[in-house]
Design a binder for these strands. Structure first.
Lengths: 234, 234
DNA sequence: GTTCTATTGTTACATATTGAGACAATAATA
DNA sequence: TATTATTGTCTCAATATGTAACAATAGAAC
């Protein structure tokens, strides 16, 4: 049974997720490409009638990335009338070979409760949903056009991430368990979109007393080997 | 036609507003008391089928306080299953003399998109809604029990307000157009829940270059008269 | 082995910000 | 005119941050 045929979801309510990853010095997000149309959109889904809103977002994340236990934060709910464009959804569904009644629940107006997630790029196993050809990483600095208001959703997610980073440090969720100080700095630079001073960054991070220092990392490069760090467990 | 009889709202979607005011050195919010039950709740409402989500929240604010052009910010959407308690709404509606079918849309599961507002205490004209006996101010430090998860909604609103205050200054929205430095400091103290140092506060506020200094305020008290300030227009 | 290169961890010092108190100014009262 | 309460400003100490210098070191070149 496809999502189109089920009756098990709350009407008018969707969720969308801005899933951040970090690789090769770049901050990236996951986008899905719908069949034929070539349209790009954030991964999202619907809320089961017997499901917590947060659970729905976690389920969606698990389905697309295979990941559990992820940093996931709700940041805004988009509910403008202007995001109601039934012809967009109709086209996407038609490209998948379905022809829905105009009063089908999926063609109705939706508000989108939006979440952002921070994940370890290396750990994902990407799986498109039933309406999509692909799911893939796109650099945040160079995003293509997205359907509906999804570009605005990404912008707000990035703004929220920046504000959060200044208050409560969550940058580490984008890295593997152990990382070098330089890698951590690159994450911060990618999120803030600007270079940071190496010595100040190192002093501040160490001063926060949230990092644990481990063995050195010998990469084979001809210079001093950096220490590996992990975030201290609470 | 009462809200109960209309079909013009989106099902499953409500909004609730934490409306902050400041008076006599205390931070307060507006609560409504339902007929007979004595139950207290945040002012809220539903979203019209042809209405932006934000517009709905503004409309609700206008209906209860008479105020337009208000600082209003969406901060979270509550969507746990545990907030679905049809018997609560049923009881409230029954106390108003109605007897709804169990499948009436108002008895269904709702998610609540929550907003907080900052208003000038002096300017409100309070108006209860059709299910309530009263709407009134309650001190944030000494709140009674609220229905459903409304206490959690208030807690999250206060947390968001505190975080915002550190980043972008919005404390002035709780004061009249012109105010003394001491009044502004009291607002900040009420929001943060702690005393601040007078001289440091004054220096920081003046240094931010967002205040305009006006004439002095002669209160009749036997001491130096403070200047009045207003927030600089952008 | 010795020298060289790139990068790292740490220190030193200047500059900026904040904490804490002192002090002069002043509006009304006694 | 002296007194009281509060305000606006200044001073100095304590912290935090910006900036550069420097020693340590892993591997490559010789």
């Amino acid at each position: 049974m496809t999502v189109l045929e089920t009756q098990g979801f709350l009407p008018h309510i969707a969720f969308d997720s801005v899933i951040f990853g970090f690789s090769k010095g770049k901050l990236k997000i996951l986008l899905m490409e719908y069949h034929d149309t070539g349209w790009l959109a954030l991964p999202g889904g619907f809320v089961g009638k017997n499901e917590d809103l947060d659970e729905a977002a976690k389920r969606g994340l698990k389905e697309r990335t295979g990941l559990d236990n992820i940093y996931l934060e709700q940041f805004y709910t988009f509910g403008n009338l202007s995001r109601f464009k039934p012809e967009v959804m109709q086209t996407i569904i038609a490209a998948n070979g379905f022809n829905l009644n105009p009063d089908h629940w999926m063609l109705d107006r939706f508000i989108s409760v939006s979440y952002f997630a921070l994940i370890d790029f290396e750990k994902v196993i990407l799986t498109p949903d039933e309406l999509s050809d692909s799911i893939a990483w796109y650099e945040i600095e160079n995003l293509p056009d997205l359907i509906l208001d999804h570009s605005a959703i990404v912008a707000k997610a990035l703004q929220t991430l920046r504000e959060n980073l200044e208050r409560k440090l969550i940058g580490g969720n984008l890295l593997p368990e152990r990382f070098t100080m330089n890698e951590l700095q690159q994450v911060y630079e990618a999120i803030f979109g600007q270079k940071l001073r190496r010595t100040t960054f190192q002093r501040k991070m160490l001063g926060l007393d949230i990092l644990e220092r481990h063995e050195k990392l010998y990469t084979g490069k001809s210079h001093k080997a950096p220490y590996l760090y992990s975030f201290r467990k609470v």
